[in-house]
Amino acid sequence: MTLVEAVILTVITAATPLLIAAIGELVVERSGVLNLGVEGMMAVGAACAFAGAVTLDSTFGGFVAGAAAGMALSLVFALAVLGVAANQVASGLALTILGLGLAGVIGAPFVGARRDPIMQLQVPGLTDIPLIGRALFGQDPIVYLSFALVLAVFWFLFRTRRGLTLRAIGEDHASAHALGLPVIRMRLLAILFGGACAGLAGAYLSLVYTRFWSPGMTGGRGWIALALVVFAAWRPGRALAGAYLFGLASVLQLHAQAGAIRLPSQLLSALPYLVTIVALVILAARDRRATGAPASLGIPFVPDR
């Protein structure tokens, strides 16, 4: 395996959880809800997935457990922000704190356990192509799922009637309600989808990226996913580009630290964040139309009855 191939493979592994979490949050924010609890839902997803996989001795079972746990936690958030129209920022932050705490409790008995590597695609002939063979045809199912998610979300948002309804609700929930669009129901479904994505992203961390569980293992990736959504101007394609750019930069800076580059390691560690922000800001600045957040983002909706 050449160095370039190794870099490509680690980039994919680093980018996949970010991409899945970001694409979930993108749908939530397009519906006009700001869920700052991504980090917490990822942490719980990681812990439940690992616990589930060890207990059931099934990696697939682990992924299901992770996604279900993320979704369950997001339901708590939905009850607060949709049920009683609580402040979304405060509820999201509380969700993160709750999630990190819960994850610690759930994961503690499993510290020290390890899981085997996940099954990866093997296409005779294709997978053995040098350089790109393993990157394109030798990945685990979740990587392919993450790409399918981007496509599906794009198609849903911009090509289907329900996607239009969701975007309209995110733009102006009062108008949407006046037209009889189901504001609360769409938002609930979006929040649950976002929770499942965050849980799945966490599961990928503990089952594929590290293959063990340790406290605080999400390491702020939930926040990165949130930032990606904003800098991607709420567009699925750009979230994909942003996640991979971030993955690339973080892998390169690791190599740079290991190599001979004489820069403080803190500076290098900050590099991926800087590169991602700069790149996405440039993209956004070129296209003025696309920089607008959904106009109802973060505003509680209270219909008068």
Binding site: L164, A168, D172, S175, A176, A178, L179, L181, A295
Partner: peptide, 20 residues
């Protein structure tokens, strides 16, 4: 036809109509 239009500023005319 509402007094304060129930329109979505960032959507197109056709999308605004489709939504309803």
């Amino acid at each position: 036809v509402f007094q304060h239009f129930s329109l979505f500023e960032n959507l197109t005319v056709a999308e605004n109509i489709a939504a309803a």
